[in-house]
Simulated assay, not measured.
Amino acid sequence: MPILLFFLAHWYLSVLMQTFFLHRYAAHQMFTMSKAWEKFFYVLTFLAQGSSFLSPRAYGIMHRLHHAYADTEKDPHSPDFSNGIFDMMWKTKSFYNDIVHNRDTIPEKFKKGVPNWRWMEWFGDRWAVRIAWGTAYTLFYLYFATAWWMFLLLPIHYLMGPVHGAIINWYSHRYGYTNFEVNDTAKNLLPFDFLMMGEAYHNNHHKFGGRPNFGGFRWHEFDPAYPLIVLLDKLKIVHLRRGRDLEYM
C-alpha cells in the first residue's frame, strides 16, 4: 500500500505542477503572480517532479512553439514527424536541452514574459540532483515494496515529467474525440480526465489556447486544475486574466 500511495501522490503532484505552473502560467500566462509566489511554485514544482524536474522557462518557450507550429516540421513534438513515441521523446529532449543551454535560435517573441529563476533552473538540472532524487525513490521502494512487480513503477518515477508530456503530445494527437475543428490533430484524449488534471482536453485547449478552464464544453468534461486556480485567484495568490483565448501567448 505505501508504494501505490507514493506512486499516486508523485503522479498527481507532478502533473498538477506541470499543468498549473509550467503550462498555464509559464507558457500561456493565463494568470499572473508576484515574484515571491513565482519562486514558491518553482520550488514546489521541483519537489513534485523531483528527478524529472522540467525548466519552466524551457517548457514555456517550447510549448508556445508547439501551439504556433502544431503538426509541422517546426513543432518540437509532433507524432506526424516522429518515428514512434520514443523518437518523439528524444527529439523533444534535444529541443529542450538546446533551450536550457541557450543553444537555440528561437525568435524572442516566444520568450516574452517566461519565468526564469536562473539559480533554480540551474540547480534542478544538475545530474547530481537528479541522481539523488532517483536514489531516494529507489531506497523508498527497497524499504516498502512487497512484490517484485512494484519495481516496474520505478522508471516512471525517474521520468515522471517527460512521461506526462509524452502521453499528451503523442496520444492526444492520435486518439480521442474533437469538439472543435482546429488546424492540427489535437484531440480530447479522455471524456472524463481522471488521469491528467485537465491536460487530456487537448482539442479544447488548442481551440482556446488562453482559456484557463480546459474542460466544460460537454457535461462530462471536468478540469480538476481549474477550481484550484479559481481558489488561488480568490485568495489573491494568483490573478486570473479574464477573457483570454489567445492562440499561444
Rank of each mutant, 00 (worst) to 15 (best):
residue 205 H to R: 02
residue 153 L to P: 14
residue 100 V to D: 03
residue 90 W to V: 04
residue 55 S to Q: 02
residue 8 L to I: 03
residue 107 P to I: 01
residue 79 P to A: 10
residue 200 A to T: 03
residue 132 A to D: 01
residue 33 M to S: 09
residue 232 L to Q: 05
residue 110 F to Q: 03
residue 5 L to N: 06
residue 161 G to F: 09
residue 74 K to A: 15
residue 199 E to T: 01
residue 240 L to G: 09
residue 3 I to Y: 11
residue 122 W to V: 02
residue 44 L to H: 03
residue 150 M to N: 12
residue 97 N to V: 01
residue 96 Y to S: 02
residue 166 A to Q: 06
residue 163 V to I: 11
residue 94 S to V: 14
residue 117 W to N: 13
residue 165 G to I: 01
residue 241 R to I: 14
residue 218 R to G: 03
residue 68 A to R: 14
residue 61 I to L: 10
residue 147 A to G: 13
residue 56 P to D: 04
residue 53 F to L: 01
residue 14 S to C: 13
residue 70 A to L: 06
residue 181 E to F: 07
residue 84 G to I: 05
residue 238 V to H: 07
residue 53 F to D: 00
residue 177 Y to Q: 11
residue 220 H to V: 00
residue 154 L to H: 12
residue 59 Y to N: 00
residue 242 R to I: 09
residue 12 Y to T: 01
residue 42 Y to Q: 00
residue 67 H to Q: 07
residue 65 L to C: 08
residue 135 T to V: 14
residue 113 G to I: 04
residue 96 Y to T: 00
residue 53 F to Y: 15
residue 26 A to F: 11
residue 81 F to C: 10
residue 142 L to G: 14
residue 40 F to S: 06
residue 197 M to Y: 13
residue 113 G to C: 09
residue 173 H to I: 00
residue 234 K to N: 10
residue 138 T to I: 09
residue 45 T to V: 02
residue 179 N to C: 05
residue 194 F to L: 15
residue 239 H to V: 04
residue 121 E to P: 08
residue 118 R to Q: 13
residue 112 K to V: 14
residue 189 L to Q: 07
residue 192 F to V: 15
residue 5 L to R: 03
residue 125 D to Y: 12
residue 148 W to E: 08
residue 210 G to L: 05
residue 223 D to Q: 05
residue 184 D to G: 05
residue 85 I to H: 10
residue 102 N to E: 15
residue 7 F to R: 00
residue 37 W to L: 08
residue 243 G to E: 08
residue 155 P to T: 09
residue 46 F to A: 04
residue 67 H to Y: 12
residue 23 H to P: 08
residue 126 R to N: 11
residue 219 W to H: 10
residue 217 F to M: 03
residue 118 R to N: 14
residue 195 L to I: 12
residue 92 T to W: 14
residue 48 A to F: 12
residue 13 L to M: 13
residue 121 E to S: 02
residue 12 Y to L: 06
residue 244 R to D: 15
residue 136 A to L: 14
residue 71 D to L: 05
residue 207 K to A: 05
residue 127 W to C: 03
residue 1 M to C: 08
residue 211 R to M: 10
residue 240 L to W: 12
residue 142 L to F: 15
residue 112 K to I: 13
residue 192 F to Q: 09
residue 63 H to T: 00
residue 36 A to K: 14
residue 88 M to G: 07
residue 125 D to T: 05
residue 44 L to Y: 07
residue 157 H to Y: 13
residue 202 H to N: 04
residue 149 W to H: 13
